[in-house]
Design a binder for these strands. Sequence first.
DNA 1: GCATTGCACTAATGAAGGTGGAGTGCATCA
DNA 2: TGATGCACTCCACCTTCATTAGTGCAATGC
Lengths: 182, 182
Amino acid sequence: MTAARITRCAQDLAEERGLDGFTMHDVADCAGVSRRTLFNYVSGKLDAVLGVPPAPDPSRLIEFRAGGPTGRLADDVKATIGAFLDSKDLAPEDWERVRRLIAADARLHKAMHENFAKVAAFLADAILEREGARFDPLRARAAATVTLSLFDVALDAFVADPSTSLAAYFMAAFDGAAALFD
Amino acid sequence: MTAARITRCAQDLAEERGLDGFTMHDVADCAGVSRRTLFNYVSGKLDAVLGVPPAPDPSRLIEFRAGGPTGRLADDVKATIGAFLDSKDLAPEDWERVRRLIAADARLHKAMHENFAKVAAFLADAILEREGARFDPLRARAAATVTLSLFDVALDAFVADPSTSLAAYFMAAFDGAAALFD
DNA sequence: GCATTGCACTAATGAAGGTGGAGTGCATCA
DNA sequence: TGATGCACTCCACCTTCATTAGTGCAATGC
């Protein structure tokens, strides 16, 4: 449908001409909507190219806040973020294209980081709710920052070598960080 | 002596005029050395203002690589970084001035981050040596990135509220991250 | 003999100005 | 009610220029 068409057009144009080589008017023409309408589907140019970011699954968040799915915080963070990262159901060649685009322009890399930063902040709030007084604001901040930095590690690894999925790299980075705190 | 004089002059000038409002020639005149000699003491303008970064203590690094001081990785990382952050022996009012300068100019904040990034990379190498095959490159990268992000949390907290030392904030952030992996 | 310094050079940065296009609000239309 | 046209603001990027940061090298002085 329209959002997918927009993404495909934006990616085609970005690969051909680079991020600065096409306008949102070009994308709109390609996708068959007006430029104004385009912004009803994507929040900006970078998201047009990257595709609409997935929304966190409300039921998983409810479960997480209630202490699930396993009861162990680390495992539950892992499961929740892993599911989020896997929720973007792209074919391998689409992931490969996203990877190439991210590698080619630091602004896209930064946008990925920033999109995930929102998720990490959300998760920190959820941790505060779930864990109560055990987590003060500094701890919540540390948790969010660490989660985000592990995403960065995973993203860098994915861009460098896409034979492993972003979610799997995140899991590995998470385990690596856990080993630091053994 | 000379390095301390350079730092004091650079800080005076930075507080009066902002980072762009004085030249290295001004600092040199104030400190009583030539501009050329100034660079024998500091690597650049930002380090003139922040003071020369401490060097990691070689004996502590040797101890760390050998599996010390306690044998538990998390405790040893904490102890080693804590000692490093405490090794800059400034009076409270000097720390307060550094804090004000960092808060006033993002470039100084960034320089602090980058100075610590070198330490974090060093530590990751030391972890690789100490822990051997248990830590592959991705794990080492995750460890370094997490350590650096916890420094960022500590630095932000210190700039916002300097009633606690940078080292103590780092310890608290480290414990907060450890709680994430419980 | 080594640290300081002067000098000349390159590289980097900030300021200022301009521009195209991103992003947004609002009214109209189908 | 969603799509669209239109007008507007804001912003990122580019260019130009001047200043200064940073650096290498040779000379000097203690």
